[in-house]
Design a protein around this nucleic acid. Structure first.
Length: 891
RNA sequence: GGGCGCGUAGCUCAGCGGUAGAGCACUGUGUUGACAUCGCAGGGGUCACAAGUUCGAACCUUGUCGUGCCCACCA
């Protein structure tokens, strides 16, 4: 595969960048950049979404501030106003993405209402209509009485709220008693057309078929039997309101009941309600119904009751099930291939668990209501004649043509627009020029990976898969990478109303406290929250937010991109990574100081220390590569961080100082070259995560290495295992030894409180041939890093009672401190170590003493354990010896 | 009611079958020509609990407790 494509989740034109965008963009950019460096033809497809309801609400609110409603303007002028607003502020988020370093293909930018994309939408609509996969139907929909539009199931969010359960008496028409029904919505009583009981319920079996007096209405309704009714709940009798409840609607259809719609579009009661209630808001009507029932003695009792209240996700208004004509997509035929694509692995979810969520939903999927009673969006390409016949086409002319209508018949277009997600579902191919067979379409469909949050798996991912399978006959992407949501440090969702929003750009550029407070407290829906928000903000950010820079922010996002769990975002992480950026920068400064104007030899025999860092780097490169391939940016970032800081800076740079400040002129050019080339390779590895700093440093070191090319962005991605030398196991062990020896001396210094500046005499005792060879090889470096005044081997009989000691297997590292040694301090130190060794020996012994362990565990594990034991035993013996010597001194 | 997660160092999180890890915070110390946004050294964890599988469990199984999210028509 030589091509790589990621589609950007198109942000709303209304939007500005929030943390989730920045997080997501970082992930996508990392992959795009690394794939680009791997030589692939990459496309990261950007764009924005017209976001029907959200955008319309924003503009309406602005007009309202000027005292104008959209109805004052009329449809055409209102839509014009939205376009104008879009032109003015629609590219905010694109500008912010540039600041983040997002390497999208800006020339390919699309907007879901571009002419080209609108054409795609109509084409798909017409095509699905022709196939019978789009139809117009009257049924119950979720109706938002504030926005006056239908909503899809997904746009309705239910939450548990405290309500009441009213028990109401319905008298029998024959005057022989009554039944009691329980309801959470007494006002719907006015639209009841039956009462249902369970057919198995013996209490009521005699009553089925009888009529009841429906209170307050003068109507009579039957008692019917239906399995839906749970005899155990309440009285076992359910009032049935087919026009205002989804279950009742189904029952109504089963029993052929009349459907009485008692509501207007704004949820006031209409002419089908008794006169006394007409025009009342539904909640006012509820109060009146209850009061009237009570007055009539028909209210048996009221109890408090928790129930799920459905609200529109935009307006927060309580949604009504409402009987209207709407357009629907018949999804079952579309869902089947979309399910199969995931089942057979053509699409993979990462992490894989999410496929289950996907399947659960896809298997229960219901027809998708796609019409919205809005003005902003893709207007539905359907026309009606005076008799209400429907004509669908690309435009009015096309519709006439298809149906053979001449111009004498007047048509009017459907007033509604399509659900925003309808056009979003086409995004993977609409942006590439479909239905034209463009080169872009051929190259970049299917996309490689979709990076998104789990919150829009249903809204978007599933629908893209369905539409992709339908119109491209292929999956829209091969991998769906689901990331977690960014939350604040306390785990709260970031929201304007909570006042805990962080703006990614404020983390990049910094912001002072007053500006931050102002930003968080202006434009609140609930202005009274302002003081609490201000207080919390001042407490959390007493100094405001410092400028961390883009790369630090990106690195933080990468490091936080673990497997799918939600992310608590803490400034401490950004600060730590800002320091990492700084560390890298300073390391580069060191390298430049050592190499500028100096001989740098490209062809050389690297010394052992150079070979060591090359070997470690090789390992890092292969780790980063593997982790990127598994979408584990967190692990990739960690490998880079550890290599740069803990190996390259902490050890390698320190090692080279000995060579570079030493006498051996011949060794210097090679070391300089290694310094540069390791830095250069590391920069290429870092570049996808930290594009700015890596580029900046790379430009400065490029000349010394004689590298061709204008930018690190297009340099080859580092390959592990490419260099001639095999993995340098021996060198790794050498340097491990060297570090241990150095740390042994440092520990003595630190624990005995010896000034870091004081040169020390170092003595080695015991040890084996390898120890001697190693010391000979690394004596210079060792001496430099521990500040040795002298280094000598002493024989086994030498008096070491005046020495502090560090142990490394058979080797004793001694620091003679004649007369200065604080014997008590040293004894304490040694006893502490002794206890540690004892514990280790005990663990090892008990393990090896277990016959079943020795018999069953793999040989290498047992062998490893034996070695461990002998090492600890040896340490134990030597520590014991040294303690005895010191104690004898003390006496 | 179903589904998916999570409970590991003070905090935020990796690790997911072979001696408990990172960052931040903490302690001691240090301006040795890359870096005090730093160096060096150090403290800190019966890996929620219980039982099981295994030579061996933070890791696998089962259960319990706590916690978060998603889906669902109980009036």
């Amino acid at each position: 595969l030589y091509r790589y494509c990621i589609i950007l989740t198109p942000p709303n034109v209304t939007g500005s960048m929030h943390m989730c965008h920045a997080f997501q963009d970082t992930i996508m950019d990392c992959h795009t950049r690394s794939q680009r460096m791997q030589g692939k033809n990459t496309l990261w497809q950007p764009g924005t979404d017209h976001a029907g309801i959200a955008t319309q609400m924003v503009v309406e609110r602005q007009l309202l501030a000027k005292g104008i409603s959209r109805h004052d303007l009329g449809r055409d002028r209102f839509v014009e106003a939205v376009w104008q607003w879009k032109e003015e502020s629609g590219d905010t988020i694109s500008r912010q993405m540039r600041r983040l370093g997002a390497s999208v293909d800006w020339q390919a930018h699309r907007f879901t209402m571009d002419d080209e994309l609108s054409l795609t939408v109509r084409k798909v609509f017409v095509s699905l209509y022709k196939e019978g996969l789009i139809y117009r139907g009257q049924r119950l929909v979720n109706w938002d009485p504030v926005l006056h539009t239908a909503l899809s199931d997904l746009e309705v969010l239910s939450e548990e709220e405290n309500g009441k359960l009213w028990h109401i008496c319905y008298p029998r028409a024959d005057g022989r008693g009554q039944v009691v029904v329980a309801t959470t919505r007494p006002e719907t009583l006015l639209g009841d057309t039956a009462v249902a009981v369970n057919p198995q319920d013996e209490r009521y079996s005699d009553l089925v078929g009888l009529m009841l007096e429906l209170p307050l209405t003068g109507r009579r309704i039957p008692i019917i039997a239906d399995d839906y009714v749970d005899p155990g709940f309440g009285s076992g009798c359910v009032k049935i309101t087919p026009a205002h409840d989804f279950n009742d609607y189904e029952i109504g259809k089963r029993h052929d009941l009349p459907m009485i719609n008692i509501l207007n579009p704004d949820a006031t009661l209409n002419e089908n309600a008794p006169l006394a209630y007409q025009g009342l808001d539904r909640f006012k009507a509820r109060e009146k119904v209850v009061a009237d029932l009570q007055a009539a003695g028909l209210l048996e009792r009221v109890e408090s009751h928790k129930l799920m209240i459905p609200r529109g996700d935009r307006s927060q208004a309580v949604v009504e099930p409402y009987l209207t004509d709407q357009w629907y997509v018949k999804v079952e035929p579309l869902a089947k291939p979309a399910i199969e694509a995931v089942e057979d692995g053509r699409i993979q979810f990462v992490p894989a668990n999410w496929s289950r969520t996907y399947f659960d939903w896809m298997h229960r999927i219901e027809d998708w209501c796609i019409s919205r009673q809005l003005w902003w969006g893709h207007r539905i390409p359907a026309w009606y004649d005076d008799k209400g016949n429907i004509y669908v086409g690309m435009d009015e002319q096309d519709a006439r043509l298809r149906c053979g209508l001449d111009s004498s018949i007047s048509l009017r277009q459907d007033e509604d627009v399509l659900d925003t997600w309808f056009s979003s579902a086409l995004w993977p191919f609409s942006t590439l020029g479909w239905p034209e067979p463009t080169a872009r379409l051929k190259s970049f469909y299917p996309g490689s990976v979709l990076v998104t949050g789990f919150d829009i798996i249903f809204f978007w991912v599933a629908r893209m898969i369905m539409m992709g399978m339908k119109f491209m006959d292929d999956v829209p992407f091969r991998t769906v990478y689901i990331h977690g949501l960014i939350r604040d440090g306390q785990g709260q969702k970031m929201s304007k109303s909570k006042g805990n929003v962080l703006d990614p750009l404020d983390l990049i550029d910094g912001i002072d406290l007053e500006s931050l407070v102002a930003k968080r407290t202006t434009g609140l829906m609930q202005p009274k929250m302002a003081s609490a928000i201000e207080k919390a903000t001042r407490k959390e950010f007493p100094e405001g937010i410092p400028a961390y820079g883009t790369d630090a922010l990106r690195f933080t996002f990468a490091a936080l991109a673990t497997t799918g769990r939600d992310i608590r975002f803490e400034l401490g992480r950004v600060e730590g990574n800002r320091n990492f950026c700084n560390k890298l920068w300073n390391a580069a400064r060191f390298v430049l100081m050592q190499t500028e104007g100096q001989t740098v030899k490209a062809s050389f025999e690297p010394g052992p220390i150079d070979r060591w860092i090359l070997s470690r780097m090789d390992r890092m490169v292969s780790e980063v590569d593997a982790h990127l391939g598994e979408y584990r940016l967190d692990l990739a970032a960690q490998s880079l961080y550890e290599f740069v800081w803990n190996e390259y800076c902490d050890w390698y740079l320190e090692f080279t100082k000995s060579t570079l400040q030493g006498e051996d002129e011949n060794a210097k050019p090679a070391t300089r070259h290694t310094l540069l080339s390791v830095l250069e390779t590391t920069l290429r590895c870092l570049h996808p995560i930290m594009p700015f700093i890596s580029e900046e440093i790379w430009q400065r070191i490029r000349p010394q290495l004689g590298i061709q090319g204008d930018t690190i962005m297009l340099q080859p991605w580092p390959q592990a295992g490419r260099r001639d030398q095999s993995p340098d196991q021996d060198i790794d062990q050498d340097i491990h030894w060297l570090k241990e020896v150095i740390q042994g001396v440092r520990r003595i210094r630190s624990e005995l409180n010896i000034s870091p500046g004081k040169p020390l005499d170092i003595r080695f005792q015991g040890g084996n041939e390898t120890d001697r060879e190693r010391l000979q090889c690394y004596q210079g470096v060792f001496g430099q890093l521990v500040r040795a005044a002298s280094i000598q081997w002493v024989d086994d009989l030498a008096d070491t009672s005046q020495c502090a000691v560090a142990l490394l297997a058979e080797l004793k590292i001694l620091v003679p401190l004649a007369g200065l040694i604080d014997v008590d301090a040293e004894l304490t130190r040694l006893h502490k170590q002794l206890e540690g060794e004892k514990a280790h020996v005990k663990t090892c012994q008990s393990r090896l003493g277990n016959r079943r362990f020795v018999e069953n565990a793999p040989a290498e594990v047992v062998e490893q354990e034996r070695q461990r034991l002998s090492e600890h035993e040896s340490n134990l013996t030597r520590l014991d010896e040294q303690i005895k010597k010191l104690q004898s001194m003390n006496n």
